[in-house]
Design a protein around this nucleic acid. Structure first.
Lengths: 189, 189, 189, 189
DNA sequence: GCTTAAGCGAGACGGTACGTCTGGTCTTACT
DNA sequence: AGTAAGACCAGACGTACCGTCTCGCTTAAGC
């Protein structure tokens, strides 16, 4: 019988969600580098200690705030034709990276990961792109014979779009994405 | 022929190179986020105003400091076999991204570009990966019939490795890179 | 007769004395300004609310903790010779102000009284020096003809030593105290 | 030849006096304990680092701010009659301690000295009461034969009023001060 | 023996000052 | 006019304590 209950006042759920929403809002309003722990606390109407008590850096808050959204936006319905499945995923990924608040958070996090190894581990553990990508890969693997192992397949599936967007290119149009998916299917046939 | 010479004391070349060296050193020693304008000036033995006079942010210094090295490290000698050419390029790229100081600078800049649109433009203009990649693409295009247009081809060539390294994965070994090159050659055949 | 008894759990005597002891200890260990309500509660093994419920500030706790000791340490046995009585009192006062924990508490309170008028009232009401001094004055008044009224006599008796100690001087030796007592007796003869 | 000049921008005199005035104002407006380094900087229209660069604590600022005023207010013109000289000094001291901003600063500092030994040393070194008192003592010593050595004489001269005021009593009226001066003259005759 | 009500410990809460740091700007004298 | 030095104002950093609150538990008096 575990039964033991933490003593003292329990954590405030309302403070938690206020912080997560504040981070969401501030990221799009002022950008990642202008988003400060102080600003988050004030925007959320929360004490600064309350923020520091539960999250060590703004990156940690951002991961928690966007993880759920990210997984939802990258989910895809499978089709018999692997090219269509891949195209759908690429279209979702392009929209995510270029137009979604959660995608902006992801890019900010991936950027911060290049500056701070601890954020790097955080992002690697969250595996925000890899998890949805693996769902797609599991499906196309039954139709294509030479899909490489996950770590390469995820990179080949998501890397071109990710690098493209991160270097400032606009999201490719659907026909270009379909051509990209076809090349992948050819390579993995 | 302007002939006119700026009046007053000319810009100090020694201060310029001292700053560029200081940035190189500090990036590997303390990392991008711990590298401050103040620290750069002190390390270079230079006044802070001198740094601000010539570069608006540390990102600008970093671009100037690493651009040349970056291009050099990604040059590749062409072979008759496109797979070998691609493999060599991928190996160079993997080494650049994971082991080279210039590569660390590139990752830091690409990261900062996600936080600051002006740095984004700077990185896009410098086109550090794209330029060497296009040299390779121009060569393999004579042996492969379906290499897509540059903006997609560069992304498909560099994106998988870039995303992989940026999410914390180690550099793939040579056989895996050769397999990756073969898949590209298949897709672009 | 009210006879009515408060319902509910009665105040915990053990918590009360634990707090008073904690304050005594902390004053000598860390000093007045480093002594916090939080620290007092933790040292006493008591909840912070329990402290705030019964005392509004640390000054109030300190008064309660030291008042009794203070009065005891300043009591003096009367002699036929008023100079000897005054000398004994001054010696006790000097020891109290420089060497006694209760004296340290008194000085801290008198100091705090200069910052916070409410503490000033508290200290004035407790009258920690005045009460023992008046006992001495009542005695010497029967041997000396011109002891001024209490409020001046207490100040002239205690003030020199108090100011001296509060400005950092060490306690005078017994002969100097005897000389001081003689001068008082002369002035008040 | 000393001739050497400190390099860099010289200290701003305007910032210095702004801080000193801010401290003067804040002490009377909000009191010592509510006077914060942050508040001083804001009131002075000065950066917080500028305050910390030149003064480690608010006590240090206060000493610098009130030292000059204090000496001026406690100066006294000597008379042939030592009782009159002493009475004048006591009247000045009473006004200083109860009505002057500089006197309020002195009381606050003496209070803080009881909490913080470093402030104690600061106040002891400044010797704000002792210096003016010694001027008076030097004068009356030529008319009175038994003025004790300085450290006791200063305490006997200033201590009664100081303790009286610090324990909350109002300033005595002139006749009471004259009586006090007469007692001192008798004791020191 | 059950109810009632207040005290108790723990610890999270919003708030704010602390002292430090960096950012960018400025003001010197020197080169 | 460019430079090294360093002071300037501004404001975020992460920590500490403030005084309050919200829990579940304890302790007695009174029904």
């Amino acid at each position: 019988m575990t039964g033991s209950v933490a003593p003292g006042r329990p954590r405030s759920e309302s403070a938690r969600v206020a912080v997560l929403h504040a981070v969401d809002d501030l990221l799009v309003e002022v950008g990642y580098s202008a988003m400060t722990m102080k600003g988050i606390a004030e925007r959320a109407g929360v004490g600064r200690m309350t923020v520091y008590r539960w999250w060590p850096t703004k990156a940690h808050i951002l991961v928690e705030a966007c993880a759920e959204d990210a997984r939802g936006e990258l989910a895809v319905t499978a089709h018999a034709d692997p090219v269509r499945t891949l195209t759908d995923f690429l279209a979702g990924l392009a929209a995510f990276l270029t137009a979604s608040p959660a995608g902006a958070a992801y890019r900010a996090l991936l950027g911060e990961a290049q500056h701070d190894p601890e954020v790097g581990r955080l992002v690697a553990d969250a595996d925000l792109l890899g998890a949805p990508a693996r769902v797609v890969l599991d499906h196309v693997r039954s139709r294509l014979g030479a899909v490489p192992e996950d770590r390469f397949a995820v990179a080949e599936l998501c890397g071109p779009l990710a690098l493209s967007v991160m270097t400032g290119a606009p999201a490719p149009a659907r026909p270009a994405l379909r051509a990209m998916a076809r090349r992948l299917a050819t390579a993995w046939a």
